[in-house]
């Protein structure tokens, strides 16, 4: 495989994590504009772990996930009872606060003859754990996709379990779910924390793929894109957000002949697609049809 294809496939994998985290909340009935912040928390935490504290990547990634879950729970707790646009705006406000904190975050240590660490708006460069360990792009690609497949297996198992049905009940009508004896607040908090951890894992990998991160990577554009991936791909199955990422990054890269008109074509296609399929390509009905055939 050439370097270009590896890069595209790696990016598809990386952004699938944050798309899955936005999709998870979408299935639970909430629109989050804030998943990019937890992606950022993961990127910064893992970068600090490997580049500044000398931790191995797996440990740094685990710490990043814990921190992402904690940050998401912290945002989730005061907003549990908010619905609809109010919840969406609260997640956006929290995410923008975190992005500004990244801009104000200065912590550098001297390593050899250079200073390494987050430097406010100048970003955080030198996250070179992969290069120092001699890990090739192809190995990294395999790592990303193995992790993603692991996450997908968990998602698909949950899908067919009692928990999956409970989640969909919550997404369908929280009042009804509450009256059916579901502990809505606890479930929602769990969903939010799991989404935060998942986005943070993606962020940790992103930081090590790019070796350089800056606060601008984690602005609202990434958040709305992640949400759009889930909705384009479909709410019926966890393959939905993956399909969304493949369509966006894949189609964008494949149609470089359309350079300059790409977003005009793609934006219009998405809007028209949603007219006919408001719950995405792989919505519940399609998934049910496929299952009944299999």
């Amino acid at each position: 495989m050439d370097e270009y294809a590896i890069g595209v496939l790696t990016n598809i994998g990386l952004f699938s994590f944050v798309a899955l985290s936005a999709w998870l909340l979408l299935v639970a009935g909430e629109l989050s504009f804030g998943q990019q912040a937890f992606f950022g928390v993961g990127a910064y935490a893992a970068g600090i772990g490997t580049a500044m504290l000398g931790w191995p990547l797996p440990l740094a990634a685990l710490a990043a996930m814990a921190l992402g879950a904690a940050a998401a729970a912290l945002v989730g707790l005061p907003t549990l009872r908010l619905r609809g646009l109010y919840f969406t705006m609260a997640t956006l406000a929290a995410a923008e606060m975190l992005r500004i904190l990244f801009e104000l975050f200065h912590w550098q240590i001297a390593l050899g003859d250079e200073r390494i660490g987050p430097d406010g708006t100048q970003g955080f460069r030198g996250i070179r754990w992969m290069l120092e360990r001699g890990i090739e792009p192809l190995d990294f690609l395999a790592m990303v996709w193995i992790l993603l497949i692991g996450v997908m297996v968990i998602f698909l198992r949950v899908e067919n379990s009692r928990l999956g049905a409970t989640l969909r009940a919550l997404g369908h009508d929280p009042e009804l779910a509450r009256s059916a004896g579901i502990d809505v607040d606890r479930l929602k908090l769990g969903v939010v924390a799991a989404g935060g951890a998942l986005a943070a894992l993606g962020g940790a990998l992103f930081a090590h793929h790019n070796t350089y991160i800056e606060p601008r990577n984690f602005d609202i554009m990434l958040g709305v894109h992640s949400l759009a991936y889930g909705l384009i791909g479909g709410l019926g199955t966890a393959f939905g957000p993956l399909l969304g990422v493949v369509l966006d990054i894949g189609v964008l890269e494949a149609t470089r002949s359309l350079q300059g008109y790409r977003m005009i074509v793609f934006g219009g296609l998405v809007a028209v697609l949603l007219v006919f399929r408001p719950r995405g390509l792989l919505d519940e009905r399609v998934v049910h049809w496929i299952r009944s055939r299999a």
Partner: peptide, 13 residues
């Protein structure tokens, strides 16, 4: 959600 995401798509456009 679909309306909001569609309006985002047109934003990109």
């Amino acid at each position: 959600a679909a309306a909001m995401v569609a309006s985002f798509a047109l934003w990109m456009q």
